[in-house]
Amino acid sequence: MKKGPFLPKLKKDLRRNRGAYLMFLPVLVYYLIFCYKPMYGVIIAFKNFIPTKGILASPWAANHGLVHFISFFKSVYFGRLIRNTLVISITSLFVTFPLPIVFALLLNEVRSRHFKGVVQTCSYLPHFISTVVVCSMVTLFVNEKGFITHLLVQLGIAEDGFSLLTNKDFFVPIYVLSGLWQTLGWSAIIYVAALSGVDQELYEAARIDGANRLQQTIHVTIPAITMTIIMMFILRLGSVMSVGSEKILLLYNEAIYETADVISTYVFRKGLVDSSWSYSAAIGLFNSTINLILVVSANRISRKLSGMSLW
């Protein structure tokens, strides 16, 4: 970019791209009103929130406002919560991130357009079922009489007569695989769409060069969707610390807290005891700070390595 004083340049740019800026105005207004305006509220984490006083006038919390953070860090469960959260979310990441890509690639190899459509339609269906229903079905299939339990008993992996959900070693696989089932087809949509945009001439050229299907996939198809993959990966990294509570709450029980209790469920249980807004805000802030650090680093690394970045 040309060097020069910024303001005159900006003025010129605003004039030249007036149309574009005007188009962005409603989007900007949306972000300002619905995202940025409430952001001052994070200070709730440093206060003892009292409803009638409002966010700004509530008194500051003890220990320079850090008392909620300190009591979270000092909690005997802190280590376990962080460990479980990371284990569940990273395992999910490794399973539910690459497999939809594989699925999209395989789908791309299906020649019959009709069959492809049917399979794809079926594959989204689980996404439409509400979590409550999904969890009740998962419970049904892994209970002491469920067919998945039967299968594992026959393989000698599980003990007969017990629900898999009473065994702490099975929780993460159950959580992750049911998650995969819920999202496989749905997450593949974006890649299928990206694949549809691949220039057919490239395949033609590869074929002329004597590439077989596999080579075509490696040299043409995958590079074509690399940008989408990297983008989706960076986006996904931003939620490593946030494992949603709804599904875990519906699946876990005291017998497997050791592997199933995560930050969000802990906050939920805290919330049952009392509506401690400031405490949960503090944990939320802690989570988003780590997520933000992860995303910014991933973005930077990606820009260095591949030249592609989100911003």
Partner: peptide
């Protein structure tokens, strides 16, 4: 805004 929000109450 994807990574930072004011939270539920605000």
């Amino acid at each position: 805004t994807m990574y930072f929000s004011g939270g539920l109450i605000p």
